[in-house]
Amino acid sequence: QCIKQELICKWIDPEQLSNPKKSCNKTFSTMHELVTHVSVEHVGGP
């Protein structure tokens, strides 16, 4: 049986000017979605 898990993006953008810096905190249900999000939204490139 599949256990529902919540994956949370903890990326902190080093360019943020606010202190304390905020992490992204978007939630995902699969590791694939999380990896895709980080690749596209934070790292950039294909």
Score class of each variant (00 low, 15 high):
Cys24Tyr: 00
Leu7Asp: 05
Ser18Arg: 07
Gln5Ser: 07
Thr30Asn: 15
Lys4Val: 03
Glu41His: 06
Ile3Pro: 03
Asn19Trp: 02
Pro46Leu: 03
Glu15Phe: 07
Ile8His: 11
Ser23Gly: 13
Gly44Thr: 10
Ile8Phe: 13
Thr27Gly: 13
Ile3Glu: 05
Ile8Asp: 15
Gln16Glu: 04
Leu17Trp: 03
Leu17Ala: 12
Pro46Met: 14
Val38Glu: 15
Val35Gly: 13
Trp11Leu: 09
Ser29Gly: 11
His42Ile: 01
His37Glu: 03
Ser39His: 07
His42Asn: 00
Asn19His: 12
Pro46Arg: 07
Val35Leu: 08
Val35Glu: 15
Cys2Arg: 09
His37Trp: 00
Lys22Asn: 14
Cys9Trp: 00
Leu34Cys: 01
His42Leu: 00
Gly44Gln: 06
Val35Thr: 14
Gln16Thr: 10
Pro14Gln: 04
Val40Pro: 02
Lys4Tyr: 02
Asn19Ile: 13
Pro14Leu: 04
His32Trp: 13
Lys4Thr: 06
Glu41Pro: 00
Ser18Ala: 05
Lys22Ile: 13
Ser23Met: 14
Asn25Phe: 03
Asp13Lys: 02
Val40Ser: 11
Ile12His: 13
His32Arg: 12
Gln5Trp: 01
His42Gly: 02
His32Thr: 11
Lys21Glu: 12
Thr30His: 03
Pro46Gly: 06
Val43Ser: 15
Met31Cys: 03
Leu17Val: 13
Ser39Arg: 12
Ile8Cys: 08
Thr36Tyr: 06
Cys24Asp: 03
Pro14Gly: 07
Val38Met: 14
Glu6Trp: 01
Asp13Tyr: 14
Thr36Leu: 04
Leu7Thr: 11
Val38His: 09
Gln1Val: 05
Cys9Thr: 02
Gly44Ile: 05
Ile3Tyr: 08
Lys4Trp: 00
Thr30Trp: 02
Trp11Asp: 03
Leu7Trp: 07
Gln5Asp: 15
Lys21Ser: 08
Gly44Pro: 07
Gln1Met: 09
Gln1His: 09
Asn25Trp: 04
Ser23Gln: 14
Gln5Phe: 03
His32Gly: 10
Ser18Met: 05
Pro20Glu: 10
Gly45Asp: 11
Gln1Ala: 15
Lys22Phe: 05
Val35Cys: 11
Cys2Thr: 13
His42Pro: 00
Gln5Gly: 06
Ser39Ala: 13
Thr27Trp: 06
Leu34Tyr: 15
Glu6Val: 01
Gln1Ser: 15
Ser29Leu: 12
Val40His: 08
His37Arg: 01
Lys21Tyr: 09
Ser18Asp: 09
Ser23Arg: 15
Ser29Val: 08
Asn19Met: 10
Val40Leu: 05
Lys10Phe: 03
Ile12Asn: 04
Glu6Asp: 00
Pro14Thr: 05
Cys2His: 09
Gly44His: 06
Phe28Arg: 01
Lys10Thr: 15
His42Asp: 00
Ser18Ile: 04
Cys9Gly: 02
His32Met: 06
Val35Ser: 15
Pro14Cys: 05
Leu7Phe: 05
Asp13Phe: 11
Gly45Gln: 07
His32Ala: 13
Met31Glu: 15
Glu41Ser: 11
Cys24Ala: 01
Met31Ser: 15
Asn25Ile: 04
Ser39Leu: 05
His32Gln: 14
His42Val: 00
His37Asn: 02
Leu7Tyr: 08
Ile3Thr: 12
Gly45Cys: 10
Cys24Gln: 01
Pro20Leu: 08
Asn19Phe: 08
Val43Ile: 10
Gln16Pro: 06
Trp11Ala: 07
Gln16Gly: 06
Val40Asp: 12
Asp13Ala: 09
Asn25Val: 06
Lys26Pro: 03
Phe28Gly: 03
His42Glu: 00
Phe28Leu: 02
Met31His: 15
Lys21Phe: 11
Leu34Phe: 10
Pro20Cys: 01
Thr30Pro: 00
Asn25Gly: 14
Lys26Leu: 15
His32Ile: 07
Asn19Arg: 10
Leu7Lys: 15
Gly44Val: 06
Leu7Ile: 09
Ile3Leu: 06
Glu6Met: 00
Gly45Phe: 07
Glu6Gly: 07
Ile8Tyr: 07
Val40Gly: 12
Ser39Gly: 10
Asp13Thr: 01
Gly44Asp: 13
Val40Thr: 10
Thr27Arg: 10
Ile3His: 03
Ser18His: 04
Cys9Glu: 03
Glu41Lys: 06
His42Ser: 01
Ser23Tyr: 12
Ser39Gln: 14
Asn25Lys: 12
Leu7His: 14
Asn19Gln: 13
Thr30Ser: 06
Gln16His: 10
Trp11Met: 08
Glu6Phe: 00
Thr30Arg: 04
Glu15Leu: 13
Leu7Arg: 12
Met31Ala: 13
Leu34Lys: 07
Thr27Ser: 11
Val40Glu: 12
Cys2Pro: 08
Lys10Ser: 10
Asn19Ala: 08
Pro46Cys: 13
Val43Tyr: 15
Pro46Ala: 03
